[in-house]
Amino acid sequence: MSDRIFGGLGLLFSIFYIWQASLVEDSFMTDAVGPRTFPYILGAGLAIASLIIILRPDAGAHWPAGRQLFELAMAVAVMGIYAWFLPAVGFVIATTLASAYLTWRLGTKPATAVLFGIGSAAGIYVVFKLALGLSLATGPLGI
């Protein structure tokens, strides 16, 4: 069943893609093929592949439910929030929080997780910023 849904989504995406490709405007420079043809071909190819997946699906995939799904959604949310607020908060604070959260959810005890969060953020900061000179996000505290 999940293959059929997947194929259906692929089909919808290819229709959306072809529609978006049809909106591409010509510029003053042109060539024999134009900017829309190859995207059309690709969209059609994806549609065909999706149809075959719908018609001949594999055995269903095993999807997480309930708690597992919640864990995953939370982890993705934490990473998304991390990505969004990193420049505002600064590397060390953001990384401490995100890294502590992830290790806690993978089974580390809360106190150890906090220590690990601080340690990993500091470690990455020292190695990449101080030793290798990479630019990391600088927050209001300067770290």
Binding site: L86, S99, T103, L106, F116, I124, L134
Partner: peptide, 23 residues
């Protein structure tokens, strides 16, 4: 892996932030 995987995730972010600096 409960210690390894968070570090992998964080280093991935460090690398991608380093390319463009954009969220």
């Amino acid at each position: 892996s409960r210690f390894l995987m968070p570090v992998v995730a964080m280093i991935s972010f460090v690398g991608v932030y380093g390319i463009s600096g954009s969220n």
